[in-house]
Simulated scan of single mutants.
Amino acid sequence: MLGLGKKNLDNEDVKNPPSDDSYPIISTLYSKNNKITVNTLSLTILDLINKNQIKCEIDLNESYNVGKKLTQDDMEVMKKITLRIANKGELKTSETIAINLLKTINKNKKFNLKNMAKQSNNTANANKFEKDFVEYVKALKNENGYDDGNYRNLLENGKLTKEGKEAKKSWNNFKDYLKSEELTGKYPPESAEENSSQIIYGSCFDIEKDALKLRENNTNLTDFIDKDGYKLLNIIFNNALSNVSKKSKGTGIFYGVNDKYTIPGGG
């Protein structure tokens, strides 16, 4: 499917992901700066929710969207979203670290997002978060063969190669499918599993809510997305990094914190 042009979009192959690269790697490769951000951690959490390694309980019926600034209404919504770590079966090293990171910042296996947000304001928690996040990034790179600025034949010295640019075209076609009412209607996901997977792919490109509008909200994962859970995770994790007392150097971590989302309250 590499290098398909727009004119070839209208066929059933368009619903197939162009490669089997992991969600975090896709997000990193086709971001503006090819940097690893907390979004990769959030994508890992989404995948763990989808695999029932993390249970999600939501006491909110209506869809929800976070605004341009975090409000008390947002905090109350976060209080109604509870995550519980299940720890079932074998996990990748990066997944184990992601789960341990959640345990550390929340000091419990069960917690709501409001509590996690408040804990991310605590400097000691933030410092531990950063330390664990560094280990998560190392594991992620090792599992995927990703070296800073270099990945397979797609990325070299921080720039997409010819093959990388062709692959990006294919992913852009897939992205267009995810948010196209016409194409999704003609070639819908054939199972709840494929439905959820497509929405996680949408999260890789920050179009998860657009993808969900055209698909079924029929799992814990899709309901979490419906309540803007992916965006809330990114806000919380970015907030933790913003509260680190001394940022580490040479880790490959991108401290691209969006400071418009200020989380009220101490840890």
Score class of each variant (00 low, 15 high):
residue 1 M to T: 00
residue 3 G to P: 00
residue 7 K to I: 15
residue 7 K to R: 12
residue 8 N to P: 01
residue 11 N to V: 12
residue 12 E to M: 12
residue 14 V to Q: 01
residue 14 V to G: 01
residue 20 D to A: 08
residue 23 Y to I: 01
residue 24 P to V: 08
residue 25 I to K: 14
residue 29 L to W: 03
residue 32 K to E: 15
residue 32 K to M: 04
residue 34 N to V: 11
residue 35 K to R: 06
residue 41 L to K: 04
residue 44 T to Y: 11
residue 46 L to A: 07
residue 47 D to K: 01
residue 49 I to T: 08
residue 55 K to H: 08
residue 56 C to Q: 07
residue 57 E to D: 14
residue 57 E to V: 09
residue 57 E to S: 12
residue 58 I to F: 07
residue 58 I to G: 08
residue 58 I to S: 04
residue 60 L to S: 11
residue 60 L to R: 15
residue 62 E to W: 13
residue 63 S to E: 14
residue 66 V to E: 00
residue 66 V to H: 00
residue 69 K to S: 14
residue 71 T to V: 09
residue 76 E to A: 13
residue 77 V to R: 05
residue 80 K to C: 00
residue 83 L to A: 10
residue 86 A to V: 09
residue 86 A to K: 14
residue 89 G to E: 11
residue 90 E to Q: 03
residue 90 E to C: 02
residue 99 I to H: 00
residue 100 N to H: 03
residue 101 L to N: 01
residue 103 K to E: 14
residue 104 T to W: 05
residue 104 T to I: 09
residue 107 K to H: 11
residue 109 K to N: 08
residue 109 K to T: 02
residue 113 L to K: 08
residue 113 L to I: 08
residue 114 K to N: 02
residue 116 M to P: 04
residue 117 A to C: 12
residue 121 N to I: 09
residue 126 A to I: 12
residue 132 D to I: 03
residue 135 E to Y: 00
residue 136 Y to T: 01
residue 137 V to K: 03
residue 140 L to T: 00
residue 142 N to K: 13
residue 144 N to W: 00
residue 149 G to D: 06
residue 149 G to S: 08
residue 150 N to T: 08
residue 151 Y to Q: 14
residue 151 Y to L: 04
residue 160 L to Y: 05
residue 161 T to V: 10
residue 164 G to P: 06
residue 168 K to R: 02
residue 169 K to W: 10
residue 169 K to N: 07
residue 171 W to V: 00
residue 174 F to L: 15
residue 178 L to P: 00
residue 179 K to E: 10
residue 182 E to S: 14
residue 182 E to G: 04
residue 185 G to K: 09
residue 189 P to W: 12
residue 190 E to K: 06
residue 191 S to I: 10
residue 196 S to Y: 03
residue 198 Q to G: 04
residue 203 S to H: 04
residue 205 F to D: 05
residue 207 I to D: 15
residue 208 E to V: 03
residue 209 K to A: 15
residue 210 D to P: 15
residue 213 K to R: 12
residue 218 N to D: 07
residue 218 N to Y: 06
residue 219 T to H: 07
residue 224 F to H: 05
residue 226 D to E: 15
residue 226 D to M: 12
residue 228 D to G: 05
residue 231 K to V: 12
residue 232 L to N: 14
residue 234 N to F: 10
residue 235 I to G: 09
residue 235 I to P: 05
residue 236 I to G: 14
residue 239 N to C: 10
residue 240 A to P: 05
residue 245 S to H: 04
residue 246 K to F: 02
residue 248 S to Y: 02
residue 250 G to A: 05
residue 252 G to Y: 07
residue 253 I to W: 02
residue 258 N to A: 15
residue 258 N to V: 14
residue 258 N to Q: 15
residue 263 I to W: 15
residue 263 I to T: 08
residue 265 G to C: 02
residue 265 G to P: 01
residue 266 G to R: 11
residue 267 G to D: 12
